[in-house]
Nucleic acid binder design. Structure first.
Length: 569
RNA sequence: GCGCCCGUAGCUCAGCUGGAUAGAGCGCAUGCCUCCGGAGCAUGAGGUCACAGGUUCGAAUCCUGUCGGGCGCACCA
């Protein structure tokens, strides 16, 4: 609307002024003194036009006629910025767009319906999920949602490493606990798993098969335990993720790559490509050819493939399944694998930056400024379930999302357990509930608002001219571009940031209308026209907060039912 | 030693891919408030954007180097 009108008017004027291909960047200044929209074109063109930026800006300001686009003033400022002020009606017109779009406000089509795969969590089935997996689950899930919202066809995938050495260690660990269960002396092997859950698995296994494998360390025995243990752990991980509101479209088993010949085909293809050689009895891939720091072993001298090989086979498979854009979410402790997997893929002719990676730092839980570990189940680490059962899924998801992936997350339990608005999750949820309660107070439903009217009465949105209102409306208008940017950067924290800012603006607006002090600023003020316009704004705030929270997989409650403060003092 | 990531307010962190006087929350200091929904609201103090160079109209942002922190450098995953 106003934005596009200004842009096209500027572009045609610049052509008249001798600019062949004008590129007009319009931004929303953070300082209200700088107007509602601003552009720096005069500065970027100063060099090619060989004129001082302010002079160019003056000419543009004088020749531009934008009254029809809702522009009330054009000013030249600073080194050559052009600042546009909009009429309050033009500013507020976005509210009708929001109300009209409803739950789809914020959707975009940047993806053009293309397919993209997000692979995340992909934990070894050797134990319960920990906090790092939790961060990955939250990140991957929301990145997928962001892509979905911006027009991509998204596939969520979980890769199970169910074929490697770690699984053997798990099987041996269960074997040891199983023997102990029947009074036999046995020890968890080097590199094995010591968590309580291993004993639970051994116990469950014993309940199923009895004493059948006591004293038996044959391959058959280990195989039985491996199959059983993986099944139990997979089920537990699935439960933990489902309760964390994370679901996948596909679970891809590493073992299937051996069964269906994918690994063998990949070896052959790499040989054919001419980057394979043998040394010291092992088979190597010349990954240095593609920027890796050193060549990598694909098949060890004992004949067993390294992890690297099925990983390459897996990613070739992704490409062949039609996913030409793939985002892998991984802990940054695995960043060393990135160049070598990409090198393997390039050797087979896949493009250089394939796949993309989102690497995240680790999670640390603190209370009173000190690290806490409260795991019973896994022994050495805190599990994801333990965390969200303590603080709730909404809080856990939000806290794991609110920092950019590059940064460490300090999970502050003092804040997480606080139910006041100091807790950012509740701050946003309260703001949403507050909007809903205004409608309850007005005796209507949020759905009773339509574009241009509320409760059946026509709304004059140009009445929303108070500073708090303009500020709030401006923010609401930025939601789609925030989603767009968050999707493009695979950065959910931008949405968190946005929601906190918007909730803050909504709260300021709301509190300014405290009936005891400024009844004329209250939403439900006596003036029926103001009241109607403000109800449209209330509805728009509610929609945006709801859409943002939903995008993050967090509840947008209509009422806040505070949990009883019944913890012993 | 080599590679990747990170150094922004007392603390935890944003900063829209180069724009205007660097922002938010917590904490701190004042002053309000039993209010359309709760420990809330308003205002304020607080910065050499690790350091040093460079690129240009303009740098927290890009380039080089230094210092500090994390992670990785297996015929483990």
């Amino acid at each position: 609307m106003a934005l596009e009108a200004i842009r096209s008017a500027l572009e045609s004027l610049l052509r008249e002024m001798g600019v062949a291909e004008p590129v007009v960047g319009l931004e929303r200044p953070r300082d209200p003194d700088h107007g509602d929209l601003a552009t720096n074109v005069a500065m970027t063109l100063a060099k090619s036009l060989k004129r001082p930026p302010r002079q160019i800006a003056e000419e543009i300001a004088n020749r531009l006629d934008l009254a029809a686009a809702g522009v009330s003033a054009v000013e030249v400022a600073g080194p050559g910025f052009l600042n546009f002020r909009l009429t309050s009606g033009a500013v507020a017109s976005v509210l009708d767009d929001i109300v009209r779009a409803g739950e789809s406000y914020g959707r975009g089509d940047a993806g053009g319906g293309e397919r993209v795969m997000v692979e995340f969590v992909s934990a070894n089935p050797t134990g319960p999920l920990h906090l790092g997996h939790g961060r990955q689950a939250a990140l991957g899930d929301v990145i997928a949602s962001l892509l979905d919202r911006t027009g991509w066809k998204v596939h969520r995938e979980y890769y199970y490493n169910d074929a490697g050495a770690q699984i053997e260690n798990l099987a041996r660990s269960v074997w040891a606990r199983y023997q102990e269960r029947f009074g036999r002396a046995a020890e968890v092997p080097e590199g094995g798993y010591h968590g309580a859950y291993v004993s639970d698995i051994a116990e469950a296994f014993a309940a199923e098969v009895g004493e059948r494998w006591v004293g038996d360390d044959s391959a058959e025995a280990l195989d039985a335990m491996r199959v059983f243990a993986v099944k139990v752990i997979r089920e537990e991980q699935d439960r933990d993720l489902a309760d964390f509101r994370v679901r996948f479209d596909e679970y891809y088993l590493e073992s299937s790559l051996y069964v269906d010949g994918g690994v063998e085909r990949t070896v052959q293809a790499l040989r054919d490509a001419g980057f394979v050689y043998e040394r010291d009895g092992a088979v190597w891939l010349r990954t240095t050819e593609f920027g890796d720091q050193k060549d990598r072993v694909m098949i060890r001298s004992n004949g067993a493939p390294t992890y690297f090989l099925p990983d390459v086979a897996y990613h070739v498979g992704k490409w062949n399944r039609g996913y030409h854009r793939v985002i892998n979410v991984q802990g940054s402790d695995h960043h060393g694998t990135v160049p070598r997997v990409r090198a393997g893929l390039q050797a087979l002719g896949l493009p250089e930056g394939y796949p993309e990676y989102v690497l995240h730092q680790m999670v640390r839980v603190e209370r009173d400024g000190r690290e806490v570990k409260f795991s019973k189940r896994a022994g050495s680490y805190t599990t994801l379930r333990e965390l969200y059962e303590l603080v709730g899924v909404d809080v856990a998801r939000y806290f794991l999302l609110m920092r950019k992936p590059d940064a460490h997350v300090v999970f502050d339990l003092d804040v997480a357990l606080d139910q006041s608005e100091k807790n950012p999750v509740y701050k946003v949820q309260y703001a949403h509930a507050r909007m809903c309660s205004i409608f309850a107070k007005a005796g209507m439903d949020p759905e009773d608002v339509s574009p241009g009217s509320a409760g059946g009465r026509d709304a004059d949105l140009s009445l929303l001219s108070h500073d708090h209102e303009r500020e709030l409306i401006k923010r609401l208008g930025e939601f789609p571009e925030t989603v767009e940017r968050a999707a493009a950067q695979a950065a959910p924290h931008l949405v968190c940031d946005y929601l906190e800012q918007t909730a803050g603006a909504a709260n300021s607006w709301y509190h300014a209308g405290n009936p005891a002090r400024n009844p004329e600023l209250a939403v439900l003020t006596d003036d029926p026209d103001l009241r109607t316009a403000r109800l449209v704004l209330t509805r728009a705030v509610q929609i945006v907060l709801n859409n943002g929270l939903t995008l993050l997989g967090i509840e947008a409650p209509r009422r806040m039912d505070r949990a009883e403060a019944d913890e012993p003092a």
